[in-house]
């Protein structure tokens, strides 16, 4: 076994890049689910974000504006879902699936004239001092801003849910919408806000794929990343820290197994290929295996429609 050709610094750097799209989508979906909304349209919102961000970045020449547009695109699409499920009380599972199909179709329509175009490069931050630390600098402190934004978002979501009044209201709505309504909170408004946040995050994740990780526009380019994000939220038992762990495990092992293959390590390729799914699920299931606490974490009103006349 010859591992000498694997450079750990480059490995960890690409691990962070590979994990970011899933992390962004998953943290957004977690907030939506915490408010009691199960939005299965993550894949659709991601890919619409990918093309909105790509098209805008190409037209304006600014990847930053592209990311903003991607967040807006994802949020707008998610609000269609919000309108259907919150006001027209449509079934959340069916509507979410429809949103994915709609997003895939819409994105390939929007992307017709963007195939084969190269996007403007997203600059890497060169953080003074920190980037110059040997080994750790290029590993952790030499990424584009969105890697740090995604990490900051995780921290912000964690703090918001745990320490703020807004977070408490959001969780109350997700646990028991009738009780929250009786207390005078606007359940539908809170849920719409959570849905839009989820859509914006999914959009950012999609744009990270099309502008940084790949970077190009290809139809269907999310190729299931949205579903992975959804699964990570569940296996992470709706906790921000575990979502981060899950996304980094999945992205990290994906990159690691490709590197092991490239280095010619004598582990059967089938095992390596399934390892990201296997290890991510295993680890998250084990740390969430305390039955009572895991059950407490699933929002009690998840997926249930709310109507104020009840």
């Amino acid at each position: 076994m010859d591992l000498s050709s694997i450079n750990p610094i480059l490995l960890i750097a690409s691990l962070m890049v590979a994990s970011t799209p899933i992390l962004l989508a998953a943290i957004g979906e977690m907030v939506a689910e915490k408010s009691g909304v199960l939005n299965l349209g993550v894949e659709g919102m991601m890919i619409v974000g990918a093309i909105c961000g790509f098209a805008t970045a190409v037209e304006t020449g600014s990847p930053f504006i592209g990311f903003i547009a991607a967040a807006a695109g994802g949020a707008i699409l998610s609000l269609i879902f919000g309108f259907l499920t919150q006001y027209l009380l449509s079934n959340q599972v069916a509507t979410g699936l429809a949103l994915t199909l709609f997003g895939l179709g819409l994105s390939s329509l929007m992307g017709q004239s963007y195939v084969g175009i190269k996007p403007p490069a997203t600059e890497k931050l060169d953080i003074p001092l920190l980037s110059d630390i040997p080994a750790i600098g290029p590993m952790l402190f030499n990424h584009d801003i969105w890697v740090y934004v995604s990490l900051a978002l995780v921290a912000a979501v964690w703090a918001f849910l745990k320490y703020t009044r807004g977070g408490l209201i959001l969780r109350a709505v997700g646990e028991s919408h009738d009780a929250a309504h009786a207390l005078g909170y606007n359940v539908i408004f809170v849920r719409l806000a959570a849905i839009a946040f989820g859509g914006a995050c999914a959009g950012l994740g999609g744009a990270y794929l099309s502008l940084v990780r790949v970077p190009q526009w290809t139809e269907g380019m999310t190729a299931g990343a949205g579903w992975i994000a959804l699964a990570i939220v569940v296996f992470a038992s709706w906790r921000a820290g575990r979502v981060l762990l899950g996304a980094y495990l999945f992205g990290g092992i994906t990159v690691l197994q490709l590197n092991l293959q490239a280095a010619g390590v004598a582990i059967p390729v089938e095992l390596l290929s399934m390892s990201p799914y296997l290890i991510t699920i295993l680890v998250l299931v084990i740390i969430s295996s305390d039955r009572n606490r895991a059950a407490l974490n699933a929002p009690a009103s998840l997926g249930r429609a709310f109507h104020a006349s009840h």
Partner: peptide, 16 residues
């Protein structure tokens, strides 16, 4: 067909 995975595979090969 999975652009992200193909890109990762290419990067892994290049890094090696």
């Amino acid at each position: 067909f999975d652009p992200a995975k193909e890109a990762d595979a290419a990067k892994a090969l290049i890094e090696n």
